[in-house]
Amino acid sequence: MEEGGLAESSVEAVFPKGMPVLLIKKAGKVYAISNRCAHMGCTLAGGEIDGFTLICPCHNWKYDIRTGEFLSAKEIRVHTYPLKISEGKIFIRIDGGG
């Protein structure tokens, strides 16, 4: 995906190597986070962004997009993926997580 195609505070579902991943651009930085809620596996793609928080559309679980931590219990988290941007393209490192 092209970085320029990702709008600020937008949530974009992508599937590198078949993995459900969300790309989120916030404060000019791009984050890659699993597209599955830790609660019941609900897709997070329809979720709302509030600051650096992604709110699950199914049961309102709230995750920090920078760390994947569930805000009510930090021991619960969704996987985050390292990425790099080169020549305007976003490359996500998929290592079997998610």
Score class of each variant (00 low, 15 high):
residue 4 G to T: 12
residue 7 A to E: 15
residue 7 A to M: 06
residue 9 S to I: 02
residue 9 S to A: 08
residue 10 S to R: 01
residue 11 V to T: 08
residue 12 E to P: 02
residue 13 A to G: 06
residue 14 V to E: 01
residue 15 F to L: 04
residue 15 F to R: 14
residue 16 P to T: 00
residue 18 G to W: 11
residue 19 M to V: 15
residue 19 M to G: 02
residue 20 P to H: 00
residue 20 P to N: 05
residue 21 V to F: 04
residue 23 L to C: 04
residue 24 I to A: 05
residue 26 K to W: 01
residue 26 K to Q: 12
residue 29 K to A: 08
residue 31 Y to M: 07
residue 32 A to R: 00
residue 33 I to S: 13
residue 33 I to L: 14
residue 33 I to A: 03
residue 34 S to G: 05
residue 35 N to P: 09
residue 38 A to Q: 10
residue 40 M to E: 15
residue 40 M to Y: 01
residue 40 M to A: 14
residue 41 G to L: 08
residue 41 G to V: 00
residue 41 G to E: 02
residue 42 C to W: 11
residue 42 C to Q: 08
residue 43 T to H: 10
residue 44 L to V: 01
residue 44 L to G: 11
residue 44 L to Q: 10
residue 44 L to E: 14
residue 45 A to S: 09
residue 45 A to Q: 04
residue 45 A to G: 03
residue 49 I to S: 12
residue 50 D to V: 03
residue 50 D to P: 03
residue 52 F to T: 06
residue 52 F to A: 09
residue 54 L to I: 09
residue 55 I to S: 01
residue 56 C to V: 00
residue 58 C to D: 15
residue 58 C to P: 03
residue 58 C to L: 13
residue 59 H to D: 13
residue 60 N to L: 08
residue 60 N to I: 05
residue 62 K to F: 00
residue 62 K to T: 08
residue 63 Y to L: 05
residue 67 T to P: 07
residue 67 T to G: 00
residue 69 E to Q: 14
residue 69 E to T: 12
residue 69 E to V: 00
residue 69 E to A: 15
residue 70 F to L: 15
residue 73 A to R: 15
residue 74 K to R: 13
residue 74 K to M: 05
residue 76 I to L: 07
residue 77 R to I: 00
residue 77 R to T: 04
residue 78 V to R: 11
residue 78 V to I: 15
residue 78 V to W: 05
residue 81 Y to K: 01
residue 81 Y to L: 10
residue 81 Y to A: 01
residue 82 P to W: 06
residue 82 P to K: 10
residue 82 P to T: 06
residue 83 L to C: 14
residue 84 K to E: 13
residue 84 K to R: 11
residue 84 K to Y: 01
residue 86 S to F: 06
residue 87 E to C: 02
residue 87 E to S: 11
residue 90 I to Q: 06
residue 90 I to D: 13
residue 90 I to L: 06
residue 92 I to H: 01
residue 92 I to P: 08
residue 92 I to T: 11
residue 94 I to Y: 14
residue 96 G to I: 04
residue 97 G to N: 10
residue 97 G to P: 06
residue 98 G to F: 00
